[in-house]
Simulated assay, not measured.
Amino acid sequence: MLTLKFTNRNKGEEKAGMLKAVYYGAKEKAQSIFVDAIEFEKLYREAGQSSVINLEGEGKKFQVMIKDVSYEPIKYVPNHIDFYVVEKGVKIDAHIPFEFVGVSEAVKTFGGQLVKVMHELHVEAEAVDLPSSLEVDLSALENLDSVIEVKDIKLPKGVELYKTEPDEIIASISKAEEEDLSAPVSGDISNIEVEEKGKKDEGESGDSE
Score class of each variant (00 low, 15 high):
D68A: 11
I92Y: 13
Q31G: 01
N143A: 11
P131V: 09
V194I: 15
L144Q: 12
V128R: 09
N191P: 04
K175P: 00
T109E: 13
S205W: 11
V77F: 06
L155D: 05
A21H: 07
S208T: 09
F98S: 10
L181C: 00
F62N: 04
G12E: 08
E13G: 07
A106F: 03
I81L: 02
L19T: 13
G48K: 05
S104E: 05
K163D: 14
N54L: 09
V117S: 00
L2G: 00
K27G: 12
G187T: 11
K5N: 13
E195T: 09
D145M: 03
G111M: 08
L138W: 04
S208F: 08
N79D: 03
E193L: 02
S70T: 04
Y23A: 03
D93M: 03
K88L: 00
E160D: 14
D36P: 03
I38R: 11
E13T: 09
I96N: 04
I74E: 12
Q63S: 02
L114Q: 04
E126V: 03
P166L: 02
E39V: 07
M1A: 14
S133C: 00
K175E: 09
A176P: 02
G112Y: 06
D36K: 10
A47L: 07
K163V: 07
L55D: 04
A140R: 14
Y23P: 01
D167E: 09
L114D: 08
A183P: 02
Q31N: 03
Y23R: 02
V147Q: 11
E72W: 07
E41C: 02
F110H: 08
S104F: 03
G12H: 08
G25F: 12
E149V: 05
S104G: 04
V115T: 08
D152R: 11
K116F: 02
E178V: 14
V69C: 01
L43D: 02
D167I: 02
I153D: 02
Q113R: 06
Q49S: 15
E195P: 01
S133T: 12
F98H: 05
K61D: 01
M1K: 06
H122W: 05
S186M: 12
